[in-house]
């Protein structure tokens, strides 16, 4: 449709997070990256039992405590205060990353500067200036059964974030399995982007025009429908 306005009609971060949350399976172990991915926990569908992992050694944490109730020895990887759910556990950092690299997590969700069609991810720095910091990102992209990215479909300048090859420094090679964007849901499969869902209001041509690599289809493309009131 020609009246689609990229900046006005795209999904907000909350709505992208809502869509990603719908795919979290009952009974799964999940790590949500610092920042934007943390939003996903808010939209976890009712009736699903999900155990959240954080790199600094906690399984089974819950929402932030009420202001004033923080215990700063009880934080997540983003250094935010958390609470514990019944059945939570503590462990040291080597055990924590054994859970990550050892294939024990079902899902890790990260943010991105760029995702390439072969699944390469760039999300830790955009150049050589400033103070570099990597944290657990290079570990989290390995080992989880699914490694998903949530991101705006384009940069602030309107440039593509889904690209043929990353130009920013890589976090990991061939690691991303699915991307939830402000316009679409895209799988990485055999070195290609495969379009699964798109906003009904945007045409295939318009979506392809803001994507830096070819969007393939291998069946019907679903409508990306997200509640408005998030």
């Amino acid at each position: 449709m020609s009246d689609f306005n990229l900046m006005d009609d795209k999904l907000s971060n909350a709505r992208i997070a809502w869509r990603a949350a719908q795919d979290i399976e009952d009974g799964s172990y999940v790590n949500l990256g610092i920042g934007f991915p943390e939003l996903i926990a808010k939209f976890q569908p009712e009736g699903r039992d999900v155990t959240y992992h954080t790199e600094n050694g906690v399984l089974g944490f819950g929402a932030a405590p009420e202001p004033g109730q923080e215990d700063w020895d009880l934080i997540n990887a983003g250094k935010k205060a958390i609470t514990l759910k019944p059945g939570a556990s503590f462990f040291h950092h080597a055990d924590s990353f054994s859970m990550v690299r050892g294939g024990h997590l079902d899902l890790a969700v990260l943010g991105a500067y760029q995702v390439a069609q072969n699944g390469d991810l760039a999300n830790w720095r955009v150049g050589s200036k400033g103070v570099p910091a990597v944290g657990g990102a290079m570990d989290l992209v390995h080992g989880a059964k699914r490694v998903a990215v949530i991101t705006d479909h384009v940069t602030k300048d309107g440039g593509p974030k889904l690209v043929e090859a990353c130009t920013f420094p890589l976090t990991g090679v061939g690691c991303v399995t699915r991307v939830y964007t402000s316009l679409a849901v895209v799988d990485v499969q055999d070195g290609h982007f495969v379009l699964r869902e798109k906003l009904p209001a945007i045409s295939m041509e318009a979506l392809q025009a803001v994507t830096g690599a070819t969007l393939h289809t291998d069946g019907p493309v679903g409508d990306l429908i997200v509640p408005e009131d998030l």
Partner: peptide
């Protein structure tokens, strides 16, 4: 000086 090490690698190198 800074030696930047991925967090899981840092933990495992120490372990």
């Amino acid at each position: 000086e800074l030696s930047l090490v991925p967090q899981g690698t840092l933990a495992e190198r120490i372990r």
